[in-house]
Amino acid sequence: MQKIEQLIKEKARDLLAAGQVTSVIAWQKGEMFYDNAPGYFDNTEELDALVYNAFCAANLSKYLIANTKKDEKTAVFLKPCDTYSLNQLIKDRRVQREQVLVIGIPCAGMVDINKVKAQGLKGIIGITEDGDNLTVETAYGTKQVARAEVLLNKCLACKGSAYAVSDETIGEPMAVKHAPYDRFAVVKELESLSPQERFAFWQEELSKCIRCNACRDICPACSCEQCLFDNPESPLAGKANNNSAEEQLFHIIRAYHVAGRCTDCGECSRVCPQGIRLDLLNRKFIKDINEFYGDYQAGADADTNAPLLSFDVDDVEPGAATKGRE
């Protein structure tokens, strides 16, 4: 993806130099080589900090909300999966489409550094990509690792190389090679458990939550001006760690709010410091919506009505619709 990074830099330079856009959103080097952060570039000098490699998983579409409030034009580089989130933000009127120049960039699947480490590699200095493999330089020599084995979980459910929305594209579309993967596999497995086992699983998972709100802040579908849980007026906003609904049911209520709007971009699970499988909650809703109301991919376009904001006269009755062994 080195070649692509070069093309991105040139594109950004042309756009900024020509004044076509006032700022460009891409990725910039983070502290560690595998920890790239989203970056704003509003002049060409800063562009050399711009990077695009196997560790640019961050979904940049949510950063456009602030930009489109100022009457400026912004360019943004989006991977195919990020473009779905932009469509959802446009549908939710959080981003003004005409103030954004969307440039689609190909992606061969982003790498999860923890999976690389899990292959027993210590003292990693750098990783370079070549074809379907990664060469990992460590203090104890270099090693070849197959990219398909160390992909982020979210990339295993890759929605393909097509862009849901883009003004221009750079480079050729790349396929993400990975073993066959059913994104609902774990959901189905959980559904097959007994209620006690399922409850134990979720009690275990949700007890790890430290309420850092990273999942809410990264989620492009969670784009309220002022979140319900931060609003003292709302009956749910009990920050104190007592028995308020907020503590116990934050994740369920949040999953409910994004139901029908979540594009399954997987960012919430990726950024969760406690590694809670939050995507399972969202995928459960997506699986239910697909089953009850027909397949629906949030963000596939910017106008079809979200499932929870529409209805059908002969929808299934609530009682009949629950799964799992009782």
Binding site: D92, S223, C224, E225, Q226, E233, A306, L309
Partner: peptide, 29 residues
Amino acid sequence: NEQTCSGCLACEKVCPYGAISAEYKLVNV
């Protein structure tokens, strides 16, 4: 509540009476 409305107009889509419209306003937050 103008302070907390995000303008997503999900409300407008479910209103059976078409009683909801949208307007750009200067909001002091």
